[in-house]
Structures are given as structure tokens and as C-alpha cells.
Design a protein around this nucleic acid. Structure first.
Lengths: 219, 219
DNA sequence: TATTGTGGAGAGTGTCACTATCCATCTACG
DNA sequence: CGTAGATGGATAGTGACACTCTCCACAATA
């Protein structure tokens, strides 16, 4: 397949594909002549992965590159590649030193209490800490519960089951495919979960705050 | 308080505050002279809300404005303001018409099965549909389960309980405060949930794929 | 053989979220 | 009272980012 078909199959414009090629996000096709190359199904898959990371997970191209590097580096184990990809999927931002350190300590108690194998330097800790800081800043939830991070314990047991199920379902295929599967699974389930949360919140808000429910039945 | 103190209290540089004032994201202070104004605690709170929406929820300033407008418009009920804010918190993007329509139909069956009061045009439906499309595109999960969207039913009951708890905990304060509380609560709990999911995934991935567990105990 | 498509490279574009500079006051300190 | 520094307000400029355009020599296709 040549670039026009790759473009048709993925819906990504040719100039953008050329840009990804130049940036090294997309490997070059197999050259058949000085200005001709053959692209494969792998290229289609890779383009789709890039677009999913950019559009759905809203990663920067730099972070997409980190994820792809982790997927592609055969010297890195499946688990380490996944860990690296996870780190790349946490947005980098400046954090207030003191406040963040306190929140990180709360995260640590959470990790210890649940005996989780989460790297001490995992970016996801910063992410959790951000959420805890935010709750604290706006005085949401019970202070004591938040401080020893018991606030989410009930929710966590359900989350944990779901995660165990997801990881168990990763196919016994090649390393790169497993990493890709896990990365896409992470972001898709995460967005699905967030969407369900928001629908449930809208529903509960309607029940509590909206006095004239919009019923399906006509008047 | 004058602008220097507002800057100190929030950690946002003065030029940025001036920019927010110009953009109408931040209301002007009470003028005490032609070039003097007095800012209040409400301004501090508003700046913190803006920064949270920008940095944590990663909203564009345009979407932040939509949220703030919903918070501020006294003519809009608490529930409607929250719904508008929720819509603003779903990233807008171009979606493939056909594929997206199919996914939206799956979302509809989900909404009906759980008898949820979610507006037919709620942006969160697009968000859920994105996640379902992505799962389909990469062949993740069981096809049939995904199609009638039963795949997430177990997870949903836990999510729903948590959401009910959250809404029940919204204080009986003023409308604007309730909207603000709910908006911040939504994004904070969402990020906390995502972070917990990722930690659980890392843990499960370590259990399944990493053969030499990094134990706390020394050798 | 003429048109269209291709790979590759450089330069240009539009958006976004600030950031810098000015200026005519105003405030506060000495 | 005088003056250094801060303030509110406006206009213009910046840097990052993710493309998008234009060109070229050459290949494929009708």
C-alpha cells in the first residue's frame, strides 16, 4: 500500500503522515524505488495508535513518542514497557513543592495499606496526589478520611477487581502487541469509567436538584 | 487586597491575572480609584478554580469560560448549570460520523438499561462513545458484550454508588457554591479514580508479567 | 506521453496561552 | 513634599505546538 491508501484507511491527511514520518513517529515503509515505498498493516495500526493517543488520551506528540519507544524497544520487558507508557500518560506540570510533598505522603500510605506494587517514582503517584491536593484545596470530603486516604477505599476494591480482570484478559501474544493492548485498554477503560461516573453524577444530580424530571412518557 | 497579593496567594503571575481580567475570566475588583481596585476572597477562589480547570482538568480557556458562565448565571438552575459545566468538560473533537453513530446507539442502550436521566444531547455520551469505538477498533474485550454495552455493568454499579454518595454530600449552600463544589468534585474524583485504576493495573501487571517482585524487605 | 502521485525536505501557518512593554496615575515611605 | 515603586488598562510580541504548504526529481498510470 502506498501513502494515499494509508491516508484513506486511517483518515489522516497525507501531509500529516509525512510529518509523522519525518518526526520518526511512524517508521518508513519498505522502499521499492527512490521515491516509492510500501506500507503495511502495521503502519495502519501504528497510525491508529498515534491518533488514539493524540485525540482520545490527549497526549502531546512528545509523549506519544515516549509511549511508542516503550512499545518498540525489544530490550524492555513487557511490564517495564507498560510502566514507561503509563508514566508518559500522566501530564507533566509544575507542582507546588510543599503541598505536593504532603499529598505524595498520603499516596504512599494508600499504596502501603493496599500493599500495591507501584514504583516509588511512578508518575501515577503525582496524578493521585494532584487529585488529593485539589480535594483539600476546595475542602471536599472529610478531612481525616482524605488525610489517611481512606476516602476511596470502597471505590478502590471495585476498581481493583476490574483491573485484575483487564490484565488477565491481555492475550498471550507478542510483547509489543501486549504493550499496545494494555496501553489502549488503559485509556479506553479509563475514559469509559469517567464517562460512566459523569452519567451517574448527572443522574443523581437530576434526582436531587431537578424537580421536574424529563420523563420518557408524553404528557 | 490588591493584585500583588492576589498573585502571591494564588501563585499566578500578575501579567497572567491581568490577562484573565481582560479575557473576562476573572471579574474586576471593586474600583477605589482610577487605577486602583480591591480584590476579595472570591477572587482568590475564582483564580484557584480557573487554574484547577486549566492544569488539572486540562480545559482550554474557552471551555473554562463556559464552565464559569454556567457557575455564575443565576438564571440557570443548579442542575442545569452542572450539566452545562459537564458538557464543557468533554473535549470537543471531530468524530467519524458512521462509527460514532453506532457507538452512540450502544451508549443509548446502556442509558436505557440503567434508566439513567442523562440528557439526549449530553456531551458525556460522545465521551463514552469514543471509548467504545476505541475498544472496538483495537478489538479489546468481548465483541457481543461491547455491542450491547454490558461489558461495564459490574463496574457501573460500584461507580453509581460512589456517585450517589458524592451528590448526597454536596452541601446545602448557595447555588453557585454547589455548582463549583460539584465541578471540582467531578474532576478531582475522576482523576483520583483514574489514578487508582492505573495503580491497580501496574500492580496486576507486575504480578502477571514481572517475575522478580521488588519486595520491601531486604535480601 | 501527459497527467497524477510519491517520498523527502524546508518553510510557513494558525492557535493558544501567556508575557512584555507602555503609560498615566496612585500609594507609601522618607 | 517628593519620589520610587506599584497599579490598572491597553497593545503588541513570544514561544510552543501540531500541523500544512510548497517544491522537487522521479515513478506510476491512462
Amino acid at each position: 500500500m502506498r501513502i494515499a491508501e494509508l491516508s484513506d484507511r486511517t483518515g489522516v491527511p497525507i501531509p500529516t503522515l509525512k510529518f509523522y514520518l519525518r518526526e520518526g513517529l511512524l517508521p518508513s515503509g519498505a522502499a521499492t524505488a527512490v521515491n516509492q515505498a510500501e506500507y503495511s498493516e502495521n503502519h495502519v495500526r501504528r497510525v491508529r495508535l498515534i491518533r488514539s493517543l493524540v485525540e482520545i488520551a490527549r497526549l502531546s506528540l512528545g509523549d506519544v513518542r515516549s509511549v511508542l519507544d516503550a512499545v518498540d524497544d525489544e530490550h524492555v520487558s513487557m511490564h517495564n514497557a507498560f510502566a514507561t507508557a503509563q508514566d508518559a500518560m500522566v501530564p507533566r506540570r509544575e507542582r507546588d513543592g510543599d503541598r505536593h510533598a504532603v499529598a505524595l505522603a498520603e499516596v504512599e500510605t494508600f499504596v502501603r495499606r493496599h500493599r500495591l506494587r507501584v514504583r516509588p517514582d511512578a508518575a501515577v503517584r503525582d496524578m493521585f496526589a494532584d487529585a488529593l491536593s485539589l480535594l483539600g484545596e476546595f475542602g471536599i470530603g472529610d478531612d481525616q478520611q482524605r488525610l489517611d486516604s481512606r476516602m476511596f477505599d470502597d471505590a478502590f476494591s471495585a476498581i481493583r477487581e476490574q483491573a485484575a480482570f483487564e490484565v488477565a484478559n491481555v492475550p498471550d501474544s507478542g510483547r509489543a502487541e501486549q504493550v499496545e493492548y494494555t496501553v489502549v485498554g488503559t485509556i479506553a477503560s479509563e475514559i469509559a469509567t469517567a464517562a460512566m461516573r459523569r452519567m451517574a453524577l448527572e443522574h443523581e444530580s437530576a434526582k436531587r436538584f431537578q424537580h421536574a424530571p424529563a420523563r420518557r412518557r408524553a404528557t
